[in-house]
């Protein structure tokens, strides 16, 4: 048990960060995030933006799959809806970027709620298949609704403009994407301190008794889907501004599996797990790539030999997580924290 954390008020006990040490670390982290673009190279900025976009999407998926227990394999297709919404708004309507992102989120939320309707009757694998079917339909729409999506050729998106400032390079976009990622995570963390978050978890753990406790299942399941899709829509919108071209191939089905893997590796039903999972899934292939680069002078044909090894190592890492740490990186993190809290005593 931790000591020295006595509280005077209930508000202090319910705070997201309940000790000064935590608040100090958080402050340091934010300061580092602000300073990062001024120190990092273009490549690392690019990766940071991509990680932040993934954090938003993974957090959304964790709300519906990790916290509400409704397996969704449509997150990539939902991102596609958001990306196309932004592309359409930018090219055809010319509305401001922040408004486009909000509209992308809301539109995707509506689509998500529609896709979530089967969740009232089917669960688990069956629901996963239902969401796959929905994402195939969405892909078909992306590829064939020429007047909006420009078919297989896709849409080129002009750079985002906010208050007259053009956000073209990752350096500038970083200051749009990262705050939104922060807000998304903060929103999700807040959610699970209130009755709505509790209702989601109740549905995951035992939906029948949740109903007897006064939770209307249909409304909350659809709400969960809509919220997850809102996150995906915003992430997809940012994706469109980041890559500046949206095609039907931008959001393949395997991208949905990527997100699902991220919440499993990070930790299902954990906000921190969403962040760690997104970072892990995005960065580990890159780190392995760098590892191959380092090894290449030592071996004559390193790239040819090690590239497949890289993919295999990545796969083994994921399997390793499933077997040895089913609660994900978030659990490893809390174990480390516990160690330092209790030091020099054990457990």
């Amino acid at each position: 048990m931790r000591i020295g954390t006595a509280k005077q008020t209930y508000a202090a006990d319910e705070a997201l960060f309940d000790t000064n040490v935590q608040r100090a670390w958080m402050g340091l982290f934010i300061a580092l995030c602000v300073a990062f673009p001024f120190m990092a190279s273009e490549y690392w900025l690019y990766m940071a933006c991509l990680v932040a976009i993934h954090v938003i999407s993974v957090t959304g998926l964790n709300i519906v799959t990790g916290f509400t227990g409704l397996v969704s394999l449509g997150q990539a297709a939902f991102m596609g809806v958001g990306a196309y919404a932004v592309a359409y708004a930018e090219t055809k309507l010319g509305t401001p970027a922040l408004l486009n992102l909000l509209a992308a989120g809301l539109l995707t939320a509506a689509v998500g709620a529609l896709v979530g309707i089967p969740s009232l009757r089917v669960k688990g694998l069956y629901l996963a298949i239902a969401t796959i079917a929905s994402s195939i339909i969405l892909h078909f729409i992306f590829a064939n609704w020429d007047s909006v999506t420009n078919g297989v050729k896709g849409v080129s998106v002009p750079p985002a403009r906010i208050f007259g400032v053009e956000l073209g390079r990752p350096f500038a976009l970083y200051f749009l994407i990262l705050p939104l990622a922060f807000l998304s995570v903060l929103g999700a963390a807040n959610l699970f301190r209130t009755r709505i978050g509790r209702a989601f978890i109740a549905i995951r753990d035992r939906d029948i008794s949740a109903e007897v406790l006064g939770i209307p299942l249909l409304r909350y399941k659809l709400m969960s889907f809509a919220l997850a899709s809102f996150y995906a829509g915003v992430a997809g919108g940012l994706w469109a501004y980041f890559f500046r071209v949206v095609t039907p191939e931008s959001f393949p089905f395997v991208y949905s599996i990527f997100f699902l893997a991220a919440i499993i590796v990070g930790g299902m039903g954990s906000i921190l797990g969403s962040i760690l999972g997104a970072v892990f899934m995005t960065m580990v292939p890159e780190v392995l790539k760098i590892g191959v680069g380092v090894a290449s002078p030592l071996l004559s044909d390193a790239v040819a030999v090690l590239s497949p090894v890289r993919t295999i190592v990545f796969g083994i890492l994921i399997i390793g997580f499933l077997v040895f740490e089913p609660h994900g990186l978030a659990e490893i993190w809390s174990r480390i924290r516990r160690f330092f809290h209790l030091w020099p005593f054990k457990t």
Partner: peptide
Amino acid sequence: LGRHAHMKTSL
């Protein structure tokens, strides 16, 4: 959680 039905907090 038991209090759910008596609360008004929106999303």
